[in-house]
Design a protein around this nucleic acid. Sequence first.
DNA 1: TCCAACATGTCAGTGACTGACATCGAACGT
DNA 2: ACGTTCGATGTCAGTCACTGACATGTTGGA
Lengths: 184, 184
Amino acid sequence: MSRWEPDARGRMIRAAMDLFAERGFDHTTAVDIAERAGVTERTFFRHFADKREVLFDGSQALEQAASTAILAAPASSGPLDAALAGVIAAGGLLEDRREHAVRRNLLVEANPGLRERELLKLTALVDATAEALRTRGVDDLIAALAAHSAVTVFQLAFTRWVSEERPPALAACIADTAALLRAL
Amino acid sequence: MSRWEPDARGRMIRAAMDLFAERGFDHTTAVDIAERAGVTERTFFRHFADKREVLFDGSQALEQAASTAILAAPASSGPLDAALAGVIAAGGLLEDRREHAVRRNLLVEANPGLRERELLKLTALVDATAEALRTRGVDDLIAALAAHSAVTVFQLAFTRWVSEERPPALAACIADTAALLRAL
DNA sequence: TCCAACATGTCAGTGACTGACATCGAACGT
DNA sequence: ACGTTCGATGTCAGTCACTGACATGTTGGA
């Protein structure tokens, strides 16, 4: 318990996922996670605001990817197209890690508290998307509507992507779902 | 402390809203709420699953209203129209209690945890809406998309309704927002 | 070599929430 | 009137998430 192990954070995340899978989220204490990761409970809470956060480490990156993609979208794109480009870019970060996404999704779906936290993260993605649209000069309300729509598409496409046995690429799922939305 | 006071639940809700307004959610303990309501902490947690729930008592009624309205919508209505009829009906429950809605909204917006819980309630509204649409024979994915869209409209319209000084009726706000959505 | 920043450990404390058990008043049948 | 049963509540002890304050050890320069 002394040298600076370089990946304490990563170890905690893995320890948490393993323990949640073994005993379930509720029957895993923060101390359990910390111990398996070789750190103290206090250290755990220095890295993660609360026990749930350990499962949502990459969410910030999704927002970042969406934001930059939206700002980089051609000026000719309308709000919805730009927003969709954003969530497609976000999806790109998951594209080659489906196994991990599936496992993680099982854990989240199994616990109401984790689902609640996931909604918060999706809302953060909505906010980042809307903010990027506004930067492009889109009206506030339109930006909010487009952002919500795009993230909804992302959400439904993601659910299909992790549920089917041999699904198409996430980007394709998003495109399919987006097409349905436009037909509403 | 003995007779069966008929409205212990209502007293706790009011006590909680008052205390949250006075000291803020974080600086109000469950014991504080219980004491002001004249009950025990244990009784508080028998009525509400957790401290946050005390602010979301009517949410079930919204889902119920939306569901019945959707099932009662004319058969000629498309999925989106039916879903919108649902959230308009849900909004009808709030129409004549704007003051209360505004106060409550201030409390919720002031606390991340409460916002998180609100997202869960909105998702419950989405689920109820989608379920009602499916009962009408709407395809699963279409139902989900329409439900998400309608609740998004509800959400944005509600925000405007509680933010403006002398806003139109909530139903009108919803109609306005819905028009913008269709124009996307 | 000394210092400063940083990641961590230690410890004590608050408060949310739960399970088990006791009580008490009201409704009900006799 | 009386005993019973049931539902709402009180009591108590306990677990666990999370926090603040302080001490320690390690690292990378000035």
